[in-house]
Every structure is written in C-alpha cells, then in structure tokens.
Nucleic acid binder design. Structure first.
Lengths: 246, 246
DNA sequence: AAGTGGTCTAGACCACCGA
DNA sequence: CGGTGGTCTAGACCACTTC
C-alpha cells in the first residue's frame, strides 16, 4: 500500500478504507475535474500496490457516498451534486390544470454589499470582504412560488457583476461554473417555518404573518469551502415533504 | 443458482441481484425474526450454490437498504427500523435551561371506533373493520410538544384494549411487539404545515390559527402490511430539519 | 476452540463504450 | 478492436463473539 496524498493514515484501518480516504483528499485538493475520468481501477491498483478488488471496494464506498459516479465502458467520474433531493422540489409545483411544469427563475436585482454577520459567518469571510447579493423569484405561470436572497463572495464572483440580469438564465450553478470556475460539490439545507414579513408576503402574493417555509442553503466546493449562501422562502401551505424510514 | 422462494426471477439479472430479491421475499414472508440470526454466509452459499463472495454482495445490498444488520462473530440479523431519522427528532427538544432531555409520553384516551375514510384507506381495511384509536401527548417538563392521533386495526390489537392507560409506557412499538406480536419494519412519513384548529391549539397550549407541523406516519410490517396510522402535530415555530445534498 | 463475519488476493470472463 | 467497469469464483487469513 503506497499512499500518494493523505497526510496521516491509521495503519490499523483496512486498506480499502485508507485508499478511500486518500482518494477523498485527492478529490478535495482538486486533482480531478467532473468532466474527465479519474484513473482506471487497474491503474489505481498498480499505483497503490493493492489488488483490484480492494480498489473496487474503496471506489464503491465513494460511489455510495455520492462523490463518484461509475460508467461501465467509460470510466469513473467526480459526481456533481443531485439537487433532486432538495427541499425545493417539495413545493407543489402544479398549475391550475393540475399539470406539473418547470418553474421559471428571474433575477430581480444584483448588488455588491457589506455582508451582515450571519452571511459573513456562513461564507467564512474575513472582515472587509464584500458579497454579491442577488434577489430572485421562481414562478409558475402567473403565481410566485419562491423568493430568494442569494449571497456570493464578491471577489470570486466578479465576473457575474458585469452580467445583465436577463442573462442569468434558469439555473445558477452551471453559470457559476462557466463564468467563475466555481463548482458546487455539495450543500446543506435547513428547513424552518416563520411568519411572512411584509417584503416576502408581497413578493409571494400572500398575506403578511401567514407561515412561510424558509430553506437555508450553504453550497460547498469539493474542497468544502463555502461558495454560496441562500435563503429561500415559499408559502408553507404548498409544502409537502416525504421520507421513508427503514 | 437454486432459488428457494422468489416467484418469478429474471435470469438476465446478476446472481447477487436474484439472491437479494429471494432473501427479500423470504424476509417479507416472515421466515426470520429480528432476534435470531439468518443463515450464515457459508450456508447461504451452499444452499444457493454460489460463491461466498456473491452471497456477501447480496447481503451487502440488503444491509445498505437497511433491512439487515451484520455483527462480526455473531451473525446477520433482521434490522428494526431506525426512527432516529424521523421528523419527530427535529422538534427542538430543549427545556428552559437549554438542556436536551427526553420527552415523556402519555396516552390521553383509548376507544374503539369506526374509521373515517382516510384512516380506513391508509390501513387498507375492509368495510366494517373497526379501529382502536389512541390520543397521546408528548411533553417536556410543563410544556406540551406533540399531540397525536393513532389508529390501529382493532382485530390485531385486541390485547391493547384491556390495558390501563398508564401502562402503555413511553414507547409504543415495543409494546405492539410484546402484546400483539406486530413488528414494525418500516414507515413512511409526510410533513405538511397547517393552521392549528381549536383542539390541537388547546392541547399544545398555543393560539388557534398559528401554524403546526403535521407529520403523517404509516408504519408497515416486514410483509408491507399497514400496522399503524398516525397524525402528529407540533408547533411549527419549534421545528428545524436539516439534510445534506451530495 | 469453534464459528461467525471481515479483509485481501488473483484471475477468468462478460457487457458496454468509443474510436 | 482495445479499454473500461461488472460479475463470479476460490481460497487464505484476520478479528470478533461465544462457549
């Protein structure tokens, strides 16, 4: 077993486990890009001097954890996060006819601000660092579904400041990647319920004081550095979320 | 490969996959009990006429799915469901001192009823079947946390009807198992948000019309038959739920 | 000491992909 | 066609639990 990257390894751990940790820190250090396959299993077995079955077990774990994606015949790749599990998907996105359709996003404003304490801490900024703040509405037909505040570290997202609001498109993360080279690798979402304040109520076309679901999201890169902090709000009435317990 | 139980198998599927399906239907048919180990890997390999590595892969999948639990040196067991993932755990259970403590359950009433349509359908009852209905409060110190309606098929839970309310204890599922032989193997929970009606508001000590989180739970046995249907409500203000997206 | 699951190896062959 | 991951096998040895 010849490790290439990990700092400190516990020799008592199984090899596949050490190997998994080593691959994980290579991912975190940006060794690979999601568009290119990582080394083949045979090559990993050679460079780490272990049997191919051991490599397969280590890769299996990382696939299980959601970091890697195997594709028979092609190779194994870094995985982009799957936002189909996000809370957003659980606002009932059905229009009047009962037809499920895709909501449309629109950026309402963009500005460069001094962050409040909460945002500064979430994004792990130094004092003096600025943030780029976006306000955004996602709507379905005529009715607003979700109202969002989005904060980005201004220095790493300078390229967005020059962009006209109507060129942001429906999806932000591909834009981050294309314009700023920032790839979102994972996120943590927290759901709470609050009464709507006047701003949110008017944006969502509801009565102030009625409950809204607040989704707080912190998006991280492969190196676990914060990339984006976001607060999204939608009418609680339209929210329905399901889990299976086994 | 000699399957023992599965009805129709697709020969094109990998053996470990067929084996997994076969084990799964043996579990559903009640072949094993969570307190006794299932056959050893070596024995499964012999009876199914496959290599032990193939058995391991099939068992790995079932462990991953949460149905089995391995214990080195002891054996492999049916797993009881892990309710630590349940929505319930996400009501902030801290008392005035900020100390996290365990809520206390109390059964408020018990009665034998004709079920409403919603309950009847959830429990897959025939017309004429009765339900045993429990009302229950979980509280922390002086304050109520959660108010619950619980419905059980009356015929399978007859043993509970004779039980005094103060002998139900804190946990229901072990009671179901001990008194009625009904083992909960999995559950599905759905979260919605509603305004509190008068009954719920008074039970939870809050103002009517304020939002409550409603958790609907359908608990199933290993054979996927419904065992219990439950509606639980707690003040939305105290709810906070988190997921990781990778 | 006997029996269980856990680790690791080595090799054969299959299924799929892209050039 | 060559290269990738996927399946399956067989066997050696280790670590843990129970008696």
């Amino acid at each position: 077993m010849t490790l290439t990257h990990a700092e400190a390894v516990d020799d008592r751990l199984p090899r596949y486990h050490q190997l998994r940790d080593d691959l994980k820190s290579r991912i975190a250090s940006g060794a690979w890009h999601p568009d290119e396959p990582i080394p083949t299993e045979a090559e990993l077995a050679r460079t780490y001097a272990v049997a191919i079955g051991t490599v397969r077990k280590a890769v299996d774990m990382l696939v299980q954890e959601g970091l890697l994606l195997r594709s028979q015949g092609r190779g194994t790749y870094l995985r982009r996060p799957r936002f189909d599990r996000s809370f957003f998907r659980f606002f009932r996105q059905v229009d009047a006819d009962g037809v499920r359709s895709v909501p449309v996003s629109r950026i309402l404003s963009q500005s460069c601000e001094t962050p409040c304490e909460r945002v500064s801490q979430a994004l792990a900024l130094s004092s003096g660092d600025k943030v780029l703040q976006l306000k955004r509405r996602r709507s379905m037909g005529a009715s607003s579904l979700i109202y969002e505040d989005i904060w980005l570290p201004a220095d790493r997202f300078a390229a967005l400041q020059a962009l006209p609001l109507d060129e942001f498109g429906n999806l932000l993360y591909p834009l981050y990647e294309e314009k700023c080279g920032e790839i979102v690798a994972s996120a943590r979402e927290t759901l709470t319920i609050e009464p709507a304040d006047d701003v949110v109520a008017s944006e969502l076309g509801m009565e102030a004081g009625k409950p809204v679901v607040v989704i707080e999201r912190l998006a991280l890169g492969y190196d676990q550095r914060p990339i984006e902090y976001r607060l999204s709000r939608g009418a609680a009435e339209q929210f329905r979320y399901q889990i299976d317990i086994v």
